[in-house]
Amino acid sequence: MAKNSRLPTSDRFRADFPEFSDETRYPSASIDFYLGMADTILDQNKLGDQFVYLAELFVAHYTELRGRITAGASSGVNSSGGGVATSKSVDKVSVSYDTSGIINPDAGFWNNTGYGREFFWWWSMFGAGGRQLL
């Protein structure tokens, strides 16, 4: 039984995040596992109206990482390593990206997906108190 009564189901998660509709790459068992983790770690009483969205961002972050591993395994590539790629070279062509505008140095592991970066930002806002913009 879920600790949080508003914990979304895997069907609700897939409806809100249709990019995870591929059940081969993103099995329901993985989504359900991470929903259980979100239920353990997050508290709807503290997160209020944002609880469902934050739980889904949490699940999307982990599910995307798991999907990368699953996709890599099917092609014989070990993609379990982490980190944000900032450059790529093939033969004489290379590309790199300035990620300083989107990477939060305090977010660590959460920087590995866009969902994680958004989760970390929202999650860090709770309990931050008032802010004044100049």
Rank of each mutant, 00 (worst) to 15 (best):
P18E: 15
Q50M: 10
G83A: 08
R12A: 14
Y97P: 00
D22K: 14
N4P: 14
R12C: 07
P8N: 08
F120Q: 11
F17R: 05
V93S: 15
S89T: 15
K3H: 14
N4R: 15
P105V: 01
G81P: 00
K46R: 13
T86M: 09
A38H: 08
S30W: 02
Y53F: 10
E19I: 04
N111F: 04
S89D: 09
R117Q: 05
P105I: 00
G82D: 08
R6E: 09
D39F: 10
V52P: 04
L65E: 06
G76C: 09
R66P: 00
W121G: 13
V77Y: 10
G83W: 02
L42A: 03
L7K: 03
Y53E: 10
S124Y: 03
W110T: 02
L57T: 05
T63M: 05
F13E: 02
Y34F: 15
R25V: 11
S74P: 00
R117W: 03
A85E: 00
S80T: 15
I41P: 05
L47T: 11
G116F: 03
S94C: 01
S124K: 08
R14A: 02
R68Q: 15
G81I: 09
N4L: 14
P105Q: 01
D106A: 15
T9M: 06
M125H: 09
Y62F: 12
E23M: 04
S21K: 09
N4A: 15
S87L: 02
K46W: 07
S89L: 12
D98I: 11
G114F: 06
G67V: 01
S96A: 13
T70C: 00
S94G: 02
S124I: 09
R14I: 03
H61A: 00
A38W: 01
A85V: 07
D11P: 00
M37V: 12
F126R: 11
D11V: 14
G130E: 07
D49K: 15
T70F: 04
F119V: 00
A2F: 09
W122Q: 15
G81S: 11
S5W: 10
W122C: 13
V52D: 04
N112K: 11
V90D: 08
F51T: 14
S5M: 08
Y97N: 07
S5Q: 11
I31D: 01
T63V: 04
T70G: 01
Q50N: 13
S94W: 01
P27S: 07
I103D: 03
A55Y: 10
R12T: 11
T99W: 12
Y53R: 12
A29E: 14
G116M: 04
G116D: 02
G67I: 00
G48A: 14
G36I: 03
K88E: 02
L65P: 03
F13H: 02
D98S: 12
